[in-house]
Structure formats: structure tokens, C-alpha cells
Design a protein around this nucleic acid. Structure first.
Lengths: 121, 121
DNA sequence: AGACTCCGTTCAGAAACAGAACCTATACAC
DNA sequence: GTGTATAGGTTCTGTTTCTGAACGGAGTCT
């Protein structure tokens, strides 16, 4: 009886039923990498290797996050090649609806987290 | 030479200088609890015990997150009592500018993460 | 004195993460 | 058919971070 992976409930899952919609949103995308994966999707990226190179996240974590995002219906996984079997991950309607929140974060980052350039040369 | 706490650079800090403003925003508020603390501030909470009870976060993590938010200029720490010395944490202008992003997350949560009620009483 | 409040800090054990190696399947070159 | 490359993961080991609970300090209340 090999159970490849237990769905282990962490504190994340508690947030999923929180009274506050912000907390419920965070239960899906509130970890270090997930929102960056979604951002990459908005930027047109769709494949495992693309995400991995773009983010520098470990393959282990990336694979778990992608699985979670698919489970949550934010991304969908489609084969773009049958042999060899290969997949793309792309935004669902639910995923595309993140756009306003992402824009909000983008605007805040632009305004309040300017990139500090080394003073000269 | 007691160094109370080293500023230990984690992957979070790498994000602070990322080309993408979303990533830079996440370097400040992109962990499990920080955005919820900011949300609580918008809801009028301001004291350590209030955050702790509201979120259920451990005191250890709460204290670190508050310190970080103050360092980043998102919150400010003001004494509301000199003796015993006690503080409130309240939003700065930088913190208040999170409102649009928070609203974006709230709307997404409301639309896509409905609270599942148990089927019948 | 003893109990209570507020704001933390410290500690041990558990969970998550990073970095690297490994695996499967296919294609392409020789 | 041997070797190299690509794509999409999984497995392993050690480090970092988090949780839960206890402790501390400074002051008030009774």
C-alpha cells in the first residue's frame, strides 16, 4: 500500500476556511513562491523548466507548488506532447482573476521598493 | 560580545532587489503571517496581544514580523504608555498604500474561495 | 505578598526548504 | 547502440524556520 504522498494538513489549510477572504486567498497563494509562479504565468511562462530557471526555486518545491495550484484550480495542466509526455501549466479563469491583486502588489512594489542602484558607475 | 540577533539574510532578502516589483513587494509581505498582520492593522488592531489572539501566530514569529515591518517602514511603533513601557503598531503611509493589493486579494478570496458550510445544521 | 496584564524571549521538537544527485522517456548525432 | 542533450520530475541529506509551551521583566490591583 504505497501512499505516494499524504495530503498533510498544515496551518495553510486552516486558513482556507477562515472568516476573512484575504486569509482564504492566502491559503492558496500565500507562500514564498506560489504568487511568483502565478506572476510568471501572466508573463507567458508555462513550463516546468521555465519556472525553475526564472525563479531559482528548487525543483522539489516547484513541483509541489504546481501540483497545489492545479488542485486549487488556479492553473491547469495540459499535455503539449504525448511522446515524450510533457506538460504546460496555464492560468484558468480563477487564476486570471488574480490580475487585480497582482497589479496592486506591482504598484506598491514600484512605489515603495525602488531598486537601489549602486551610487555611481 | 552579545549580538542579540544577527540579521540573517534569507532568500527573502534576495527578492528585495529583484527586477520585478511584485517580487520586491513579496520580499516585505510575502510570508504566511505578515500580510495578515497588515490586514489586522487595517481592521484597527494595533497591539501585540491583539495580533496574537486574532491570528493565533506564535509570539516568537509575531515579534519578528512586527520588527521587520517596522524596519521596512510599513508599520510604526509608538509608546502608548511610558511606564510600563508599551507600544502600538500602526500603519505608515507606506503601509496604508497596501490597501489596493489587499482589496484585490479580498475580492479574489470572496469570489473563488467561498466558505463551505457543513451541508445542513 | 500574591495574582494579573502586556510584551516579549528562550528552548526543544517538528515541518519546510535548499542544493545536489538521480530517474524516466525521448530525440539526435555518430 | 553508445553517448549527449532536453524535459519533467523524485529522492536524499543537511540547514533554516516554525510551532508550542514555558519563562522573564515591569508594572498594577487587591
Amino acid at each position: 500500500m504505497v501512499r505516494a504522498r499524504e495530503e498533510r494538513a498544515s496551518r495553510w489549510d486552516e486558513l482556507a476556511t477562515d472568516w476573512c477572504p484575504v486569509a482564504r486567498a492566502l491559503s492558496v497563494i500565500g507562500d514564498r513562491w506560489t504568487l511568483l509562479i502565478v506572476r510568471d504565468c501572466f508573463l507567458g511562462k508555462s513550463r516546468f523548466e521555465e519556472f525553475q530557471k526564472s525563479l531559482g526555486v528548487t525543483r522539489h518545491v516547484l513541483s509541489e507548488r504546481l501540483r497545489r495550484l492545479v488542485e486549487q484550480g488556479v492553473l491547469e495542466r495540459n499535455a503539449y506532447s504525448e511522446r515524450p509526455l510533457r506538460f504546460t501549466y496555464s492560468l484558468t479563469d480563477k487564476g486570471r482573476d488574480f490580475a487585480p491583486a497582482l497589479v496592486g502588489l506591482k504598484d506598491w512594489g514600484k512605489k515603495h521598493m525602488p531598486v537601489r542602484k549602486p551610487a555611481a558607475g
